[in-house]
């Protein structure tokens, strides 16, 4: 499997091809969201909602062979697309990899301009939650 930074560089290249046209960029992010793996209906509950997002975002994790898998969903297509990018970079990684990840692709693709400041806060909340999950797993490993 490619390392985190290789995946980030791929994303940067993909967004580079889209250029400056905001409409096609937004449509592209939404299409990415549609490819997200199905989210189990019974997990679409209050406990799994990430606080700090304008849209509803559900996030759950599982742990297998020393790696963390993320599953997520949202009620809005744009947010689903954003999560799909994060999952592509961070899912199926060790806790340490997730904790140490420097997610430079977000700045590189100009995400702040694409989604605006209110959604950027939501994106930051998603990343924080994913890293917190990784920290929790790591502390279990260290214990």
């Amino acid at each position: 499997m490619e390392d985190i930074n290789t995946v980030q560089d791929e994303i940067i290249d993909e967004f580079g091809i889209l250029g400056d046209d905001k409409e096609s960029t937004i449509f592209y992010i939404m299409e990415l969201g549609e490819q997200l793996a199905d989210f189990p209906e019974e997990e679409r509950k209050e406990d799994n909602i990430i606080k700090g997002c304008q849209s509803k975002v559900w996030l759950i994790t599982s742990y297998q062979d020393g790696k963390i898998q993320f599953l997520a969903d949202s009620n809005t297509a744009i947010t689903k697309g954003l999560i799909s990018l994060l999952i592509r970079v961070l899912s199926d990684r060790t806790a340490r990899e997730i904790i140490d990840a420097d997610l430079y692709f977000i700045k590189e693709i100009g995400m702040g301009n694409i989604i605006g400041s209110q959604r950027s806060n939501g994106l930051a909340a998603m990343i924080k939650q994913m890293k917190l999950f990784a920290l929790a797993y790591q502390s279990k490993i260290d214990a």
């Binding site: 409409e23 937004i26 304008q54 849209s55 809005t76 297509a77 744009i78 947010t79 605006g116």
Partner: peptide, 14 residues
């Protein structure tokens, strides 16, 4: 079938 936030976001892009 489309969330109002998504509609607003796409309109803003235009």
């Amino acid at each position: 079938n489309i969330h109002p936030f998504d509609v607003g976001m796409m309109l803003d892009a235009s």
